[in-house]
Amino acid sequence: MKPPRFQYHAARTIEEAIELLARYAGEARILAGGQSLVPMLNFRLLEPRALIDIGRIPGLDAITGGPLVTLGAMTRQRSAEESPIVQTALPLLREALRWVGHLPTRSRGTIGGSIAHADPSAEIPLVLLASDGSVTVQGPQGTRDIAAVDLFESLFTTSLVPGELLTRVHMPAMPAGTRIGFDEFARRHGDFAIVTVAVALTPSEDGSTARANPESGPRYAQVRLAASGVGSVPLRLTAAEAHLLQHGTEPASLAAAAELAAAAADPVGDANGSADYRRHLLKVLLERTLESTVRPTAKRLAS
């Protein structure tokens, strides 16, 4: 339960980190907060020749606001959670962060590290996808942006190529009035989630959710739904989104959307839950989360 031996480099700049990555030609690992990497080293699941610590690169932990919120890759999850910019502009991220590990792991764990690690049960990659976010990566060839939909390829696998470093994370500020919902099912709070759902419902420009037919429930101009734990990467629930846009949000419509989401998912069973169980959880969690997002009870509003 101790890490194997490795060379250690504390990069002072992004360029130096990229040079080091090139020097070790795929045999080095980037160390950000270490909350996933160090346990994997302790278990000897990884034996990299070198660790390149990006924790001492100045400015890599900055959060900047605006229509597109940018979080430096080294932004601690805890700092994001406590950031006024995140609280105002990225309520879905703010809510999701409460579910990431525990307070002491969020003190060290980073936003960029979690995304680059691409754990299929992780909350932050799911929020990136649900928020139509993107990342900036830098390599010997320069920088490029990758949209969330193109980033997650498979379990623990992103579309970064060897030698590239994830430097910044971008999420569009959610329009005022956006209602968000987030829920997950895990054996215990803080454990890896079995299934997680994220919901963001944005009213039309004038802020109204009014509708022609009062029977159909509030209508939203934009509906964003995503889930993890039901495939090897986080999944946008596009069929359910389309259904809600078209049919509104009265209870029957929410139930139908949840059915559509479950039908479209292709989960893989493992020790934590069979494929059928995961599909069932997705349906139940999505319907429940939609209901509490569209029609919050007084108690939920107070908390």
Partner: peptide, 27 residues
């Protein structure tokens, strides 16, 4: 546990509770 689960190793680093079994001394 030495892998970030049990919390017995928690100390304050710059005022924030942190696991010391998932943090390298050099960090």
């Amino acid at each position: 546990c030495e892998h970030g689960i049990c919390g017995a190793c928690t100390v304050l680093i710059d005022g924030r509770a942190s696991r010391t079994c998932t943090t390298l001394a050099v960090q």
